[in-house]
């Protein structure tokens, strides 16, 4: 019942003559839970794509990693299967190393700068390199949020972070960042975060605020340090083989509505972040503004940690950002 193109002839429309186009069902997978900003964005995308295509494009959404972990669904996509999957640039780094710099700590001041980078020629080059690996970016500028640090004990300087076990996602960029900061980077699945905090297997976590609230980290960790160590954008990718199998206008609609949905998602994210910050305060979380400079100084070594990057990559990015102004 879930074919790529399932001819829907049941619509015995009264308007007679007009032949309805064959429906195109596309599977969309992501790791976030229903209700989170990413899920709201995906639902918006589904709605916009259906509208723009007169109901021809049907996006089937699979939240909560239902189709498999990020690495597995990316593999499915690369093989040309019918699926669009949300993937972080830290993950795409395994395929094209330079992509990882978009998630490097303190690369930009804010999310807007990152979104700007996705409009540059440099990014277009990145897209071409990914395509050589059978990966097509359908949307490259989804705002995931600004990552902050949440700990059981107060942390306002890198020195106070020394030796603390901080849960990080299981990827090189996050691990190297927190090792550079002096913490013991402890990669565990996000789903285990709450119990790990509770049992004292870890001393803290880091993520955008809505995600931290989603796993109820604030129930145990009562100190939020606004480190903003990563401004985080993600991409929605599909296999090149699959994209080429779709009609050009359908791909066009997917990209356009994907952009609109990302803008909508950005608004949702910002509203929710503000709301969550208030709720954290109400639940007794102490919010600490921290001085960024010492953190930034500590992580400069991360930029030396990836020998596969094109030489001068960091400088190139900085030049691009200067051109923005």
């Amino acid at each position: 019942s879930s074919g790529t193109t399932s001819g829907n002839s049941s619509s015995s429309s009264s308007s007679g003559g007009d032949t309805e186009k064959e429906k195109i069902e596309i599977n969309v997978a992501y790791g976030n839970q229903p209700g989170e900003p990413i899920d709201q964005q995906a639902n918006k995308w589904k709605e916009l794509a259906a509208e723009a295509s007169d109901g021809q494009i049907v996006l089937n959404l699979y939240p909560s990693s239902q189709l498999g972990a990020e690495k597995d669904v990316v593999e499915q996509a690369k093989m040309g299967n019918n699926v669009i999957v949300m993937a972080g640039y830290d993950f795409l780094m395994d395929y094209v190393p330079d992509a990882g710099i978009l998630t490097a700590p303190y690369l930009t001041e804010n999310l807007d700068d990152l979104v700007y980078l996705t409009t540059t020629d440099w990014f277009a080059g990145l897209t071409d390199k990914l395509r050589e690996q059978d990966i097509d970016i359908v949307n490259g500028n989804t705002a995931y949020g600004v990552r902050h640090l949440m700990t059981n004990e107060k942390v306002t300087t890198p020195e106070e972070l020394a030796g603390l076990k901080i849960r990080v996602p299981n990827n090189q960029m996050s691990i190297k960042t927190f090792e550079a900061l002096g913490a013991t980077a402890t990669p565990t699945p996000l789903g285990d975060l709450y119990t790990s905090l509770q049992q004292g297997l870890i001393d803290g976590a880091e993520n955008p605020l809505p995600v931290l609230q989603g796993v109820k980290a604030q129930e145990i960790s009562k100190h939020l340090s606004l480190t903003g160590h990563q401004k985080f954008i993600t991409s929605w990718i599909a296999g090149t083989g699959f994209i080429e199998s779709l009609p050009a206008d359908v791909v066009e609609i997917l990209k356009e509505t994907g952009n609109d949905a990302a803008e909508y998602g950005r608004t949702v994210l910002e509203e929710q972040t503000d709301k969550v910050l208030e709720e954290f305060k109400n639940e007794g979380v102490e919010v600490h503004e921290v001085e960024i400079a010492p953190f930034k100084a500590k992580v400069s070594s991360v930029y030396e940690a990836f020998p596969d990057w094109t030489p001068g990559l960091y400088e190139e990015i900085q030049k691009l950002l200067e051109n923005k102004q």
Partner: peptide, 12 residues
């Protein structure tokens, strides 16, 4: 055969 560029997160 297809898994050549898929690597584990830490040890690659």
């Amino acid at each position: 055969a297809q898994a050549h560029s898929k690597v584990t997160p830490i040890l690659a």
